[in-house]
Amino acid sequence: MSERIPILRIGDTLLVSVQTDLEDQTVLNLQEDLADQIVARSAQGVIIDISALEIVDSFVGRMLATIAAISRMLDARTVVVGMRPAVAITLVELGLSLGGVSTALDLEKGLAKLSRPTSSAPQ
C-alpha cells in the first residue's frame, strides 16, 4: 500500500501539498484521486504545492504536466507553486518545460493567480 497525498479543499479550489519525495505509484494515485475530486467537488482551480520537493525525475515531471492537462479537461486551472531552483534546473535539463502549466512562486501568489480572470492570466 503506497501512501496517498492528501487533497484539501478551499472554496472551489483544491490544494495538493506534496510533503515527501514522490514515488511513481504515489503520483499515479494522486492523478486518480485528483481527477475524482475535481469532478466530485466541481472545483475551478487546483494548486499543487511542491515547495517541499527536493528531487524530481523525468516521470514526476511528465506527470505534473499530465495532471495539469487532465485538470484542464475537467475545466479546472492548475497552478504549480513553490518549485525550488534545483528542481527547476533539473526539469529544464531533462527537457521538460511543462508547457501549459501555470506556475507561481508561492501558495499566496498561486491563489492570487487563480482568483484573476482567465483572460488576464499570462500564458
Binding site: 497552478v79 504549480v80 507553486v81 518549485m83 525550488r84 531552483p85 528542481v87 527547476a88 534546473i89 526539469l91 529544464v92 535539463e93 518545460s97 511543462l98 501555470s102 506556475t103 507561481a104 512562486l105 508561492d106 501568489k109 498561486g110 499570462p122
Partner: peptide
C-alpha cells in the same frame, strides 16, 4: 533559454 524556462517553472517571468 534554459534559464528563462527554469524561471518560468518557478512562477516568474
Amino acid at each position: 533559454l534554459k534559464t528563462i524556462v527554469a524561471a518560468r517553472l518557478m512562477g516568474a517571468e
